[in-house]
């Protein structure tokens, strides 16, 4: 059970949130010059690490805002919550 620290609403239970998958994916372009491989990578290929994962979450049962999380996929520890337009923070160490 996770407690997610929403920047707008404060700490809330995970069931108020929805995970939107991997974050920081850039749409390739211009669209006339994108190869099938690059398009497949954009649409389908995912990092899926066993460790820290940069991902988007929606506070669906609250302020309905999107945010980025750095979350550990084994311990479910949350190392950082940051805005959608911020760059990836650097995370050191293993999750507890």
């Amino acid at each position: 059970m996770m407690k997610i620290d929403c920047p707008f609403c404060g700490p809330r239970d995970e069931h108020e949130f929805k995970c939107g998958g991997q974050s920081h994916i850039q749409r390739p372009g211009p669209h006339t010059q994108v190869s099938d491989e690059d398009w497949a990578a954009y649409l389908h290929m995912r990092d899926n690490p066993r460790g820290w994962h940069f991902e988007r979450w929606l506070h669906a049962g609250g302020c309905r805002q999107w945010m980025n999380l750095v979350r550990h996929t084994v311990t479910h520890d949350i190392a950082a919550v940051y805005a959608m337009n911020e760059p990836k923070p650097s995370i050191t160490g293993e999750g507890q």
């Binding site: 059970m1 996770m2 995970e14 069931h15 929805k18 995970c19 998958g21 899926n48 066993r50 994962h53 991902e55 979350r71 996929t73 084994v74 311990t75 479910h76």
Partner: peptide
């Protein structure tokens, strides 16, 4: 459990 996880336990909700 609809988010990436390698924890073989599962969440309560």
């Amino acid at each position: 459990d609809l988010y990436p996880s390698y924890a073989q336990r599962g969440n309560f909700q």
